[in-house]
Amino acid sequence: MAEIAYWEAIRRAHDEEMANDKLVIAMGEDIGVAGGTYKATFGLYDKYGPERIIDTPISENSYTGIGIGASMAGMRPIIEIMSINFALLALDTLINAAAKIHYMSGGQISCPIVMRTPGGTAHQLAAQHSARLARMFMSTSGLRVVTPRGPLDAYGMLKSAVRSNDPVIIIEHEQMYNLKEDIPDEEFFRPLEGAEVVREGSDITLIGYNYSVHLCLQAAKRLEADGISAEVLDLRALKPLDRESIRKSVEKTHRVLVAEEDEAPVGVGAEIMAVITEDCFYALDAQPVRIHAADVPVPYNAKLEKAAIPSADDVYHGALKVMGKI
């Protein structure tokens, strides 16, 4: 075991998968000579060269399309999009092509691409660098969407994503690249499906994904001091969604809160609430609560930004509301 940062975990997964299979390539803006905006490919340009660590021009839609075309010819491209906001430029090739080609070719052609991209707010990046958008990819047929909460999943899910035959979107978070965790020294894989209970509890279930898992964990600690036992469920994969784990946890605790950094209308939380209503309505002892971002473009001003985005404090108070304590 060794404690490594999120970015180092991603870098290690790139390195191992590229060493394992010559068909694995990485492409994106500044990932090569410059070493990667978040260092996810740091040093790999020197090791694998410009044909496999490909610095692209700032042409998100077409370099994603080139990655998709390469995958149709048997390659395994890992496509980095520097910020999820820029992924909007690549939606045509990603959603109209990658997500649909396997289906509309009657299963003949796979597009095994991985798209890695950070979504989320971080230190006053303002509206055009702070989008979340998980909910948009979650609603697209033909994609897998995963949200690693820490180095263990960041490493293990990237490795699995490279080997999966489906197009996989990995949503990272700008605030998590320096987050550290012990991970095994030997090679391992973490599956692309299945939610995970990351803290056992009996009074309330706090559901999160990506960065919001950490808000849930912080809130759970405070709730414990109040004598409330909170279970924290990390969804891990938004598509396909693990409905069974949601049901199991809610049937155990009978109370539930969903925390997301996306805005609420048609958000991830809305879908989770629908699952709870459909699958475990009668297990509920209290009205569920959603914690989410305000329905505004993310403001620049630090005070406004903080007000727009949910915090651990918001999750804590939301949980107290579910528990009938406020």
Partner: peptide
């Protein structure tokens, strides 16, 4: 719903977790 995703995925990569 056949062909939406790989219909015979390798459980080592795809899972589920549990």
């Amino acid at each position: 719903t056949k062909y939406v995703l790989d219909d015979n995925p390798d459980p080592r990569w795809v899972g589920p977790l549990h």
